[in-house]
Design a protein around this nucleic acid. Sequence first.
DNA 1: GTGAACTATTCGACATTGTCGAAAGTGGTT
DNA 2: AACCACTTTCGACAATGTCGAATAGTTCAC
Lengths: 255, 255
Amino acid sequence: MIQAIDRAAKILAALQGSRHLGISDLGAVLDLPPSTVHGIVKSLQAHGLVVKEPHGQRYMLGPTLLQLSNVYLDTLDVRARAMRWTGDLAERTGLAVRMGVEFFSEVIVIHHEPRPDGTRQMPETGLTIPAHASALGKVLLAYHPAFKDSVVAKGPLRSLTAETITDVDELDKALSEVLATGWALEDEEAVLGESSIAVPVADRDGEAVAAIAVVMPASDSPIPETVLTLLREAARNVSRELGAPGWPPSVARTD
Amino acid sequence: MIQAIDRAAKILAALQGSRHLGISDLGAVLDLPPSTVHGIVKSLQAHGLVVKEPHGQRYMLGPTLLQLSNVYLDTLDVRARAMRWTGDLAERTGLAVRMGVEFFSEVIVIHHEPRPDGTRQMPETGLTIPAHASALGKVLLAYHPAFKDSVVAKGPLRSLTAETITDVDELDKALSEVLATGWALEDEEAVLGESSIAVPVADRDGEAVAAIAVVMPASDSPIPETVLTLLREAARNVSRELGAPGWPPSVARTD
DNA sequence: GTGAACTATTCGACATTGTCGAAAGTGGTT
DNA sequence: AACCACTTTCGACAATGTCGAATAGTTCAC
């Protein structure tokens, strides 16, 4: 691991958390002298990865990241293949659709289809959500034991609402149910008033590379069977396009 | 400039251009021995800035960039303030709306409002477009001479279509017209069949920090006055929210 | 308007750190 | 099955990044 690059990445991460930070703030976060931080920041700035804010002398993330992330999204096979189907899915169900992949011990949303009701909704692509408190996460955890291990190893399961699963045994039970049924439910476990259902997407190895979810208002009524059917159909179609040998995916062996 | 970080950024840029590259490909691009490149790539990989592709041993950009870019967009005052107005603008004109800012010697789209006709459109946020061949670019060039200088210094103006302005004198003439009228037109200069109109957005210094454009199919008919009025209104509203002393913005003095 | 305190920035010497060549490991191909 | 090309590991050298002190620039208070 190259020290300078490690530090540079940590600076980007710090700016990601706090938006605007001065040289000495960053120095405090990374426990480094200001002059060292300054050198790194200036190098990042030269490439547009970091920008000095218009007024004042603090720094923030830069536009190059936007350009790079755009290309990142383009390189994702799953996403390109899925976009057609998620559009249909959102339209037919009238619900918002998300697609997510593993991201360290969380889940990152790589595609978001807003609810097709014309209301103004914040784009969610790029959002990271806790794995244990989302339907997307549960699916990915269930089909990828190594991912589950890394989440558990990271520390205690953070509670977001009263419904959040914070106990590992309880999570295990939920995950085996996911494997049994092929889909995961999350009911107000991350955000009050919001629940979601997710299913896995398989790649040509037959492993779960992504998950697709529909997000809906929490309600006491049971999941409409039609929504689940449409969701499953979308996931199966995407999986087929990716060359998956079958669906649902197989559980990746831990190695 | 720290060498290791410079090289890391160049690797990201190379992957941005070519999507998938192996260690030795990158070595060839940067003119470095494979082992050096490998060390840098591994460091980037540890932070999720780069990812090894599922099959094969090539590398591509990583999900951390998506997370970071999401925060970058959040930190942009202009964007947050503009979003409400661009939504209205798109709805009222029935046209796609873009907002862009300077990005080295190009323009990067920081917000894109798709045409509100329900058709499936590719999101354009994160796209970089040549400054001299876009309405957005012309506006930013006109109100920021230093930006124009950097574009001209970069090399000859690349031709994208038969209509692209490739002559510096001709560009100058176009830019003074932009200053005179307060808006810029681009007619099939970047993409055949597409034209756009842009106006500047002023910040609290009274300088142009961004530009807003509507994109429309190219046609022989003159610009509808209503579209221009709505566009101007949107830009003025955003500028006012940013605390601009007036509109249109003043020309930034070259220093 | 002036001074003080803080913060960012520059500079140069030191030694830590990244770099590079060679060798080992891996995967894919003929 | 053996080859070839590529990635990856390893260790020694010195080039490179790091750090402390000094300077320049801001911001705030008086």
